[in-house]
Computed example of a mutant assay.
Amino acid sequence: MIHRGTRLVVNLAALEHNYKFLRSKTSDSTLFMAVVKAQAYGHGLVPVAQKLQECGVDYFAVAYVDEAVELRNNGITTPILVLHAQQHNLPDCIERCIEPVIYSKEMLEDFYAFAKAKHQTNYPVHLEFNTGLNRIGIDGEELDAILEMLNKQDHLKVKGLMSHLAASEDLEEITFTQKQIDTFTELAKKAESVLGYDCIKHQCNTSGILNFPNAHFDMVRSGIGLYGYGNDKKYQDNFKPVGTLKSVVSQVRSIKKGESISYNRSHHASKDMTYAVIPLGHGDGMKRVYGYGGAFVYINGKPARTLGIICMDMFMVDVTDIPCKRGDEVVIYDNEHNAQEMAEEVGIISYELITGIQARVPRVYIEEGV
């Protein structure tokens, strides 16, 4: 099928390239966890996970249990970690062989009750320590009580110990990051000593993989890097953005000097001009922050700046000096004009842009050389 309308083109060959690059930064003995939460950062949960399973990743991570269930329903047999499991769907973990992160005493009590009711023995869980991100996680002073609870039962077994770096991409925060690494090392050592066995230890995200090889431990986790962004310009040439967001010109119109365009008359023409209408709006993930000239798109290789407010289903761009017609292709972002650059122009990050592309934008999967 030839897709000519608005679509997100996902290059699975670029995904494999990024995985291999990140894998090259770790030792052969270090496990690799691919983070595919939020629909694989907007690229499509199942096709991305299927490709990464073919590539040989050791683990998947998702945010919520329903994402893990969707993976299991579509043939993913690789271990899956749920980073932010919720009390109401913990039973699904056991039914689908999904490993939850235990991030509080209350979560441990809840999951223990489910595992006991299901007559589980040594069901695998991961403990998350709060080492400075201050989001979720077990604080150091809580650890003794948690370990005591675990050692009094045999329904659960700690398979992994983890934490999350807060600023691994910011080299001005090296001291803080190293403190996080040292704290995690200390807590993990204590936990393994009390439990009496070794666990899979993991703390590094994409930037941690690149900037803190001393903290790779037994496993690393990567999200944004897999999709082509390294959080650092010095690494960007090593990554290939996986997604290309494209649309088409649906209409070319003219306007006279002094007339206005879009809601609230948000652009007034300072001269006679021509503009194109693009069938993509904030209902699709083209955020309103890109209005008022906040972004360029590319039509026939030339940059066209947005005009006025981004509408829910469409937006307008200035094509006064760009020959174009209905049906011409529009590139919102691609490898050359990537999502990170587009996001930075308006003060947001690539994550916000790529994860915001809504489900009504079709995903088209290709495998082209990179």
Results as ranks from 00 to 15, higher is better:
Val361Glu: 02
Gln86Ile: 12
Ala191Gln: 01
Gln120Arg: 14
Lys51Ala: 15
Cys93Trp: 03
Ser247Gly: 11
Val248Glu: 13
Ser222Phe: 05
Ile181Phe: 04
Arg288Ser: 10
Asn338Arg: 10
Gln251Pro: 15
Ala339Ile: 01
Arg363Ser: 15
Asp154His: 06
Asp334Tyr: 05
Met342Lys: 10
Ile309Cys: 15
Leu31Ile: 04
Pro47Asn: 05
Phe111Trp: 03
Val82Ile: 12
Gly228Pro: 05
Leu90Glu: 12
Gly258Asn: 03
Met219Cys: 12
Ala40Ile: 04
Glu109Ala: 00
Tyr290Arg: 06
Ile348Pro: 08
Met312Ile: 14
Met342Arg: 15
Thr6Met: 14
Phe212Ile: 03
Glu95Gln: 09
Val69Asn: 06
Ser254Trp: 09
Ser270Ala: 11
Gln53Ser: 10
Asn205Val: 00
Gly293Cys: 09
Met273Ser: 13
Asn11Trp: 02
Ile174Phe: 02
Ile278Arg: 07
Asp237Thr: 09
Ser24Lys: 12
Pro241Gln: 14
Gly258Asp: 11
Thr206Gly: 02
Ile102Arg: 01
Glu329Asn: 09
Met107Arg: 04
Thr175Lys: 13
His155Trp: 14
Tyr298Arg: 01
Phe32Asp: 10
Asp334Lys: 07
Gln203Asn: 11
Thr30Lys: 04
Phe60Met: 04
Asp154Gln: 10
Pro241Asn: 08
Cys55Met: 15
Ala191His: 02
Leu52Ile: 10
Gly243Asn: 15
Asn300Trp: 02
Glu109Phe: 04
